[in-house]
């Protein structure tokens, strides 16, 4: 069967849900961050596929932007994690209970 749009989109959805699963279930902050990257990449795949099958370059431009923003986000997020680790000596979400009264 020729690989059509839906094939790419299904792969993207599976990848997205894997990322979601990681965010919900993993308790290491770094892994959660990696899962977030997975989700972003899944979105990238969907954009590229749609751009390809619609003969429109706008989707690819969007992916370019997403990659850039993701890079910035990773930089800031990782800096936050480092700062947090310095303060509390942990990278584990269950130890971060400041939001609970």
């Amino acid at each position: 069967m020729t690989a059509g749009l839906e094939h790419y989109l299904v792969v993207s959805a599976i990848l997205f849900c894997l990322g979601l699963l990681g965010v919900i279930l993993r308790r290491n902050l770094l892994i959660i961050y990696m899962s977030l990257e997975l989700m972003l990449n899944a979105a990238n795949l969907a954009f590229v596929a749609l751009s390809r099958f619609n003969n429109n370059l706008d989707g690819q431009i969007m992916v370019f932007f997403i990659i850039t923003v993701a890079a910035a986000e990773v930089a800031v997020g990782l800096a936050l994690i480092v700062a947090l680790y310095r303060k509390r000596q942990t990278a584990h979400v269950e130890d971060l209970t400041l939001m609970k009264l």
Binding site: V11, I14, L15, L18, G19, G22, R26, S35, L38
Partner: peptide, 10 residues
């Protein structure tokens, strides 16, 4: 992709 994604998460 899917296999490696799975290995990342679990």
């Amino acid at each position: 992709t899917i296999l490696c994604g799975f290995m990342v998460v679990a």
